[in-house]
Design a protein around this nucleic acid. Structure first.
Lengths: 344, 344
DNA sequence: ACCATAAATGTATTCGTATACAATAATCAA
DNA sequence: TTGATTATTGTATACGAATACATTTATGGT
């Protein structure tokens, strides 16, 4: 069943049916009403592929993420999808599982589907698949690559704001030996985050011990092994920042497994503020990366690029901020120090 | 750029290009090679909407879930998506957030996009939107509605197997006062699950106290409030089964908050075996619903319905089984009882 | 009533791919 | 070499919606 069938029944031409469906104002209200009635009657649904073919736009945005199992992403997706639906766009989601070949495949699918833009939250090392998108004039918005070009925008995570607050928070709790467990090596997003940590330490006038800086994988397992290493040190940190909450949770588990207590023996700060961070014991102090705002910025960036695909994209930023819960406490240095901070 | 352009450059007709792309065997190898080279050279990507328009099939399956924030779903999606990709299908995902109006909207999008089938994991009460799919001959596969019809298949969760094991496990630990916190009221999936619990209790020869059966919402909050009620009872259960792991985790939190210990004072069993259940403290004993297998069955059901959309769908089933971890232990009845089970 | 103008509707074509059918080229037996 | 046969390639058209342009109908002023 197509518009012509509707037209026949309603006694009009297919052009009129099309106009009614698209809310054109050059149809007599009575005619429009009649057509609409037939559409309802016959439960007609227009064929989107025909529209896409004619128009060149598919009303679909692609979303590429590395790992849907990391709770950060579902929380992002929820917001992103609801914004898309509000704007009559569909979402074509794909997971890379950190495999460059999957990324390749994925981007091809997006090109075939003629997506109107791609939100790339999978910060892979590869630039080749990205170039394919640019080449085909598909607006692309990346996360924290800090690189813009024609058709390529970027949303930076302003790690600095949150990291500074976090380090300052720990300093006030009399911590000075602060460690950091980062994300996977080789990702720009990981680099930016450690750098923000180091800068925050300097800003606070604290020294960074290179032995206290470890690499993780954005998953619980990474936090666990890095924390195991840290605890094996003869000279240990008393507090820890992490590249994300899962890493922090992994660290937390290892601390507990070693019979130590958080925050009494060790303070831990996460990053992201996923729902889970309020559920673990103790609830995590963490640096909040507002998911809904992130989704909004991504959407705005995509829309804006879509209007003029030849223009150079924009650099956006999303601020982060500290959320204090129960995984941070005064440094263990005897009672004096512990009492000292209470008044602060 | 379209196939005609490729054809021109390669010195062939557009039909030949189409044949090469679709791997037809009636193109001379030398010609095919030449065409392929031009395609690569010009980085040509065919327009999927034209193919969909011509073919009537979009190579896309729709997936509708209630809440992507519940970790069960991302874990399912991961498997489902990877199976789809293997079979050259795309995934159009939508979340209903339990809103019937969103469901309506969502199904319309799926119809417009001409999806080849819909996997419906959002067990809503509404049947109207479902009828829309059936009417448009879109194969539909639901979860645990236990209803089949032309074009409508169903994947039942065999709660019985897991529930029986769980109740038996508790019985062997000398529990007899066993409670249950269910899912949201009004969903068939919730009904089936309580019923399986009640049957398992009877099978084990245990009595079901109606006051011990509560309703939740498949989220942590539901587990919390139901557990709060249960603890307020003068006569309390000593063990608890739940409709899913989040519910169990909510219950766990309330138990802890009341200064009680799991499993010493209270045994808790979850349902699903999400990754989280191994991470909380103590790791949850739970009834495992194998996600990957579920995804495989859904895919198989969709494929099979797609071949003959007029045929009556099939009833599939996925078994569940108990995974014993640390949230279950002997019933508190004095040392005798506790010792008694050790030998078992 | 008549013409100018505006409003409403219709006709024909386009988007890019796949394929039925038509045409040509290659192969082979005699 | 010729005709039959098969392998390969080409031509024309359909899929369904949107729209430029053409046509018809309504409206208003005189």
């Amino acid at each position: 069943m197509d518009m012509r069938d509707i037209a026949k029944v309603a006694g009009v031409s297919s052009a009129t049916v099309s106009r009614v469906i698209n809310g054109s104002n050059l149809v007599r209200p009575a005619t429009a009403e009649r057509v609409r009635r037939v559409i309802d009657e016959l439960k007609f649904v227009p064929n989107g592929s025909a529209t896409t073919l004619k128009y060149g736009r598919s009303s679909t945005y692609g979303l590429i993420i590395p790992d849907i199992t990391n709770p950060f992403f579902p929380e992002f997706i929820r917001s992103f999808e609801s914004i898309l639906v509000e704007h009559n766009q569909d979402m074509l989601m794909a997971t890379t599982d950190f495999h460059p070949s999957k990324m390749q495949e994925t981007i091809r699918r997006m090109l075939v589907r003629k997506v109107d833009g791609v939100a790339l939250l999978a910060a892979e090392i590869e630039t080749e698949p990205i170039e394919a998108l640019i080449h085909h004039r598909v607006p692309l918005v990346t996360m924290d690559r800090r690189l813009i070009a024609p058709g390529l925008s970027d949303v930076a995570i302003d790690n600095t704001s949150g990291m500074n607050q976090a380090v300052e928070h720990l300093k006030q709790l009399r911590h000075s030996k602060i460690g950091y467990i980062g994300g996977s090596a080789g990702l720009t997003i990981s680099d930016h985050r450690v750098q923000a940590f180091v800068k925050a330490m300097h800003l606070a006038g604290l020294e960074v011990d290179p032995a206290f800086i470890r690499v993780g994988n954005y998953r619980i397992t990474g936090g666990e092994s890095a924390m195991t290493e840290l605890l094996a040190l003869k000279h240990r940190p008393t507090a820890l920042l992490t590249a994300n909450d899962l890493t922090a949770i992994g660290a937390l588990r290892v601390v507990h497994k070693n019979g130590l207590s958080v925050p009494r023996d060790f303070s831990i700060i996460g990053f992201d503020d996923i729902e889970l961070s309020d559920i673990v014991y103790p609830p995590l102090t963490t640096i909040r990366l507002p998911r809904h705002e992130l989704a909004e910025v991504f959407f705005k960036a995509l829309e804006s690029s879509g209007k003029d695909p030849h223009a150079v994209g924009k650099q956006y930023a999303v601020k982060t901020s500290l959320v204090v819960r129960d995984s941070t406490g005064p440094a263990q240095k005897g009672k004096l120090a512990a009492l000292g901070i209470t008044g602060r």
